[in-house]
Design a protein around this nucleic acid. Structure first.
Length: 334
DNA sequence: TTTTAGTGTTGATGAGCGCG
DNA sequence: CGCGCTCATCAACACTAAAA
């Protein structure tokens, strides 16, 4: 095959791939509109015509140009999903749930990973708007209010997931983190623990605040005095807990149990304890959060908080789609 | 510099046809 | 004439390369 044949071959291949409604119309003798309607299975097109057009489309290797479609309809059938850390199983499980639910509505999702960085977060919001997603599901970094304010001002439908801001104005889908914190601490108390270390997330994150206050309530209700030394705030990025916990133990902090902000932090804590010659649960008991082992088995079974965690993605998508279809509706879910 | 033409798809509207 | 069925015509979407 010489260079010219190659070019022609490529052009033909490209043409095949790029077949449009126009090509099908020419091939079948119907108008472009009829072809469009036939392929969309509209009921004002007769069955024989549909069959003919579909066959022609297959033969030409037609693939719908969704960009052109969006140009016409104003919808891209795409949801932007903006999350802090997709390498955390908690979030990847969440993504899977969102995708599965979005599929039911014939929606695609596009994922943005912010690394919990507000600058990246803003860029992700901008990119989402740029590619004209119909709506956004976002787990906000909560490091500054600007990003979400900006998002609100654009008027695009969005739903917060996992973390909440300002109950009245925004749609958010969260679990009852306060209750989760309470149950976790209560569980450890019931097992005889009085010195319970909580390794919690940064206190600008709503879920961290709520879980910590649940923890405090459990202690208070059970007559245990709150020791601020046992409330350890740490970053939620990988490695943060390891350093922090190691330090605490080296400084001889006295505790018999840990309530971790997430299962990932719990895993890191177990790793750290093992490294220091302590074993779980013999020496130290641990309760995590998120129940990731429901989706992936861990080396050691982990006591953890699940609640309605697994339904959050579903609900978030439902609420978002509803908002997209009725722009004025404001919903609140918990 | 401004204007035009072109991209692919589809909702709204309308027209032709056969039948009762 | 009125109706249902089937398909056609038109216009618009947001942006850009090319023409004027």
């Amino acid at each position: 095959m010489n260079i010219y044949e190659k070019v022609v071959d490529n052009m033909e291949k490209k043409r095949q791939y790029n077949a449009t409604l126009k090509d099908i119309a020419q091939k079948t003798g119907f108008t472009i509109n009829t072809v469009s309607r036939a392929l969309k299975d509209k009921d004002d097109i007769s069955a024989p015509t549909k069959k003919l057009i579909r066959e022609a489309a297959d033969e030409l290797g037609y693939v719908r140009d969704s960009i052109a479609g969006s140009l016409r309809t104003g919808f891209t059938k795409t949801i932007g999903v903006i999350l802090g850390d997709v390498s955390n199983p908690h979030f990847s499980i969440m993504i899977k749930g969102i995708d599965k639910q979005a599929y039911k509505y014939k929606y695609n999702i596009i994922i943005f990973n912010t690394d919990e960085d507000e600058t990246v977060e803003l860029q992700s919001i901008r990119s989402s708007l740029s590619i004209k997603v119909d709506g956004i599901i976002i787990c906000p970094t909560q490091k500054c209010a600007f990003n979400i304010d900006f998002l609100e001002r654009t008027g695009i439908p969005f739903v917060l997931i996992g973390r909440k801001i300002n109950r009245d104005r925004f749609n958010f889908v969260v679990m009852d983190d306060e209750a989760g914190g309470y149950i976790a601490a209560k569980h450890l108390i019931d097992n005889g623990h009085k010195r319970i270390l909580t390794i919690t997330g940064p206190q600008y994150i709503s879920s961290a605040i709520d879980r910590t206050s649940g923890y405090k309530r459990a202690l208070t209700e059970n007559g245990i005095k709150i020791d601020n030394k046992l409330i350890c705030e740490t970053g939620i990025q990988s490695g943060a807990c390891y350093k922090r916990l190691k330090n605490l133990i080296k400084n001889n902090l006295n505790f018999t149990a840990i309530f971790a902000f997430s299962d990932m932090i719990a895993c890191e804590a177990i790793y750290t304890l093992n490294e220091l010659g302590l074993s779980v649960p013999k020496d130290i008991s641990i309760v995590g959060f998120d129940n990731i082992q429901e989706h992936m088995l861990l080396p050691v079974p982990l006591d953890t908080i699940s609640a309605m965690n697994t339904r959050m993605p579903e609900v978030a998508v439902d609420v978002l789609i509803k908002t997209i279809n009725t722009p004025t509706a404001v919903e609140k879910q918990q």
